[in-house]
């Protein structure tokens, strides 16, 4: 017998957002919110500021996307390496690799990124890296160096979970290579939800780190690195003088409510950047949580 949702298209549409699909609901909210903000900018933000905003948003998303791809490649590579070394005869190599990974993990992410940005600044100053596109990719790669261990941990945990199961032993005794079992049967067929959730979480973390580092640089922690060296991102837009002044108006609006409408029409750059950043982070957090709930991770 046909279910109600199959008979009524409207209910079918609603069932797409059932409580157990919060990740999809928040993805729609995020994309919809960004579209509305962009239309608002189109109507009320001056063109130079709007173009800077668009570039900053694109650079931030590209950088965060690079972090995800790079962190997954490194995370997968290191997990495979550790698995290969986890044999009685290779115990020393395994310990050395684990020690190196833990050493990298022990460096606070912001400090690691600052060191990376110093290197990047040297490359930009020496004109070794002129292309803005390459600079964004390089920033993403450097960020991934401090987050890929999380991906390694997830992959290792998935392998450990399934290693004791009969289906892995059954495939092994059929002569199926262990790497095929790990990559096809464990990671691809049984861990996609875990990996997608980790990718969303790494994506959000990358946006947060890129914005944070740009903001830290803007207050002058390093003489080597300057915001003017790098392509604009949401962080550097937030740190610009115009945006700071716009954000300060929020404080004034609390005491003078008459200023409130001007926040949405006259101080759009700062308010817009702050909103897009916070809104994106909240949505990604909700998407990640939704995935955890839906797939019971």
């Amino acid at each position: 017998m046909m279910s109600d949702t199959r008979r009524h298209p409207r209910r079918q549409f609603a069932s797409f957002f059932l409580p157990d699909r919060k990740d999809l609901l928040w993805t729609v909210i995020w994309i919809g919110g960004l579209v509305i903000v962009w239309v608002w900018f189109l109507l009320f933000l001056n063109e130079p500021a709007r173009l800077r905003m668009q570039t900053a948003m694109a650079d931030t998303l590209l950088s965060a996307g690079t972090v995800v791809v790079s962190a997954f490649l490194m995370g997968w590579g290191s997990a495979m390496l550790l698995h290969l070394l986890d044999r009685p005869k290779r115990k020393r190599l395994y310990l050395a690799a684990t020690f190196l990974l833990n050493l990298l993990r022990s460096v606070p992410q912001i400090i690691g990124m600052l060191l990376g940005y110093t290197l990047l600044a040297a490359l930009v100053r020496g004109e070794t890296m002129r292309s803005e596109f390459l600079q964004v990719l390089a920033a993403g790669f450097l960020t991934s160096l401090v987050v890929f261990q999380e991906v390694t941990d997830v992959i290792q945990e998935r392998i450990r979970h399934y290693r004791e199961m009969d289906f892995v032993s059954a495939l092994l005794v059929c002569g199926v290579p262990e790497f095929t079992i790990i990559n096809r049967e464990i990671l691809w067929k049984n861990s996609v939800a875990h990996l997608v959730q980790k990718a969303v979480s790494v994506f959000g973390r990358a946006i947060f780190l890129v914005c944070s580092i740009d903001f830290i640089i803007s207050v002058g922690l390093s003489t080597e690195v300057s915001l003017t060296n790098f392509p604009p991102t949401l962080g550097s837009m937030l740190a610009s003088l115009d945006s700071k002044q716009d954000i300060l108006v929020i404080g004034s609006a609390l005491t003078e409510p008459g200023l409130l409408p001007s926040l949405f029409f006259e101080h759009l750059q700062g308010i817009g950047v702050a909103f897009v950043t916070v809104f994106t982070l909240v949505c990604l957090y909700r998407i990640s949580n939704g995935l955890v709930e839906r797939h019971r991770l």
């Binding site: 199961m165 009969d166 289906f167 059954a170 005794v173 049967e185 067929k189 049984n190």
Partner: peptide, 13 residues
């Protein structure tokens, strides 16, 4: 050599 495990539910992906 190979082996068939007793619980098919657990031996298959």
């Amino acid at each position: 050599m190979t082996m068939v495990f007793q619980h098919a539910d657990e031996a298959l992906n």
